[in-house]
Amino acid sequence: MIFPDTLPLLLAALIIEAGLGYPGRLYAWIGHPVTWIGALIAGLDHGLNRENASFAVRRLAGIATLAILLAVTLAAALALLWLCRLAGAWALLPLALFASTLLAQRSLHEHVARVAEGLERDGLTGGRKAVSMIVGRDPESLDKAGVARAAIESLAENFSDGIVAPAFWLGLGGLPGAALYKAINTADSMIGHKSPRHLAFGWAAARLDDLVNLPASRLTALLLVAAAALTRDADAFAAWSAVRRDAGRHRSPNAGWPEAAMAGALDLRLAGPRVYGAVRVEDGWMGDGRAEANAADIRRALLLYRRACLLLWGLAGLGAAACLTITV
C-alpha cells in the first residue's frame, strides 16, 4: 500500500476513531499500541541506558534504541498489512480499524472537556485534577486561568502530535508510516527530555521527533486558521497574524505553530513561563490577547478543534475521491 491508495484508508480511520475511539474494555484486556511501544522503550531504556557510561556512549545507546524500536515497529506493521491483505477486497476495513488506534480525536476531546467540566463543577480543585491527566507541569502551581490555558495549550499541541501528524504519515505511508511516527513520538515523550538520565540517551528520539512533526505542525496551524474563518466567535486574521509573529518564539520548533494559531483565534495568550516539577521554564507568549482564560474558553477551543478535525476529514475525503477517480 503506497500513496495515493493510503488516502481512502486515512479517511476511514479518521471516521472510525471519531465514532468509536478505543474501547475501554479492549484497553483493559490487551492494552493499546502506544502501551506496547512504551513497554519496548522502557525495556530498552532499562537495558541500554547505563548511568556510569560516558555521554557519547549513552548517545550511541539512544540511537541504537531508536533503531531497534523502529525496526520492530516496522516489522509488526508490515505483518499486520500482510494479514489484512488476505481479506482481499475487504482489506480496507481491518486496516482502517488498526490505523484508527494510532489517532486520538475522540480521547483528546474527552480529556480536555473534563478540564472545563472540572472547573465548572468543582472549581480550582476539579480543574487541577483533570488537567493533571493531560499536562506534565505541576498542577498545584496553576490558578484557574493557568488551568484553562494549560488545557487549551494541550489541545492545540496534541491536535498536531496526536491527530494531524499520524494522519499525515498515514496518508503518506499507510499503516507502516503512521506506526513509525507513533513509535518516534512515544519515544520522544518517554526519553526525549533533558533530564540527567535522558539528556544523551534521548537525544536521537527528540531530534527525530522534531523532524517528523515539522510538516504536521504547520498543517495544524493552517487547519485552525481555516476553522476560525468558519467560526463566529473566532478570528482567522488574528490567528494567522499570531502564527507569523509568535510561532518561532516558542521553545519547541513545532508546538508554537498550533498554539499560536489557537491563541490568536480565541484572543488569548498561551504558553509563556511555566513550571514543570520544581523547574520554571521560560517561554515566549503565543498571541497577544487575554491571559485570564476560563472554562468557557476551553469550550470555545473545543469547538474550533472539532471544526478543524472536520476540515482534516475534508482533505482526506478530497484525496480519497481523487484516488477513486484515477482508479476508475
Rank of each mutant, 00 (worst) to 15 (best):
R244N: 15
F159A: 09
L83C: 07
M262F: 14
A18Y: 12
T325R: 13
T35P: 09
P33W: 14
G31A: 09
I37N: 05
A296G: 09
R207D: 06
P4V: 07
E259H: 11
A271Q: 09
S217K: 10
L268F: 07
L180V: 13
W285I: 01
L97K: 02
L86A: 12
R280D: 07
L270F: 15
L124N: 02
A18I: 03
A104K: 11
W36C: 08
N185F: 04
R274A: 13
P273T: 06
V131F: 02
S189F: 13
S189D: 02
A234K: 09
T73E: 12
R25Q: 10
V131N: 04
R251L: 11
A278E: 10
R85D: 14
E259S: 02
L11M: 05
R50K: 12
L20S: 03
W285T: 01
M286V: 04
V115D: 08
A320T: 02
G19Y: 08
A75D: 04
A145K: 00
G192R: 00
R50D: 12
L312E: 07
G126C: 10
Y276Q: 08
S252D: 09
G289S: 10
S160A: 14
W257P: 00
L108D: 00
A263S: 10
E282C: 07
A263Q: 09
A67F: 05
A91D: 15
A255C: 15
V279R: 11
G314V: 09
E120R: 12
A91F: 10
A205P: 00
V275Y: 01
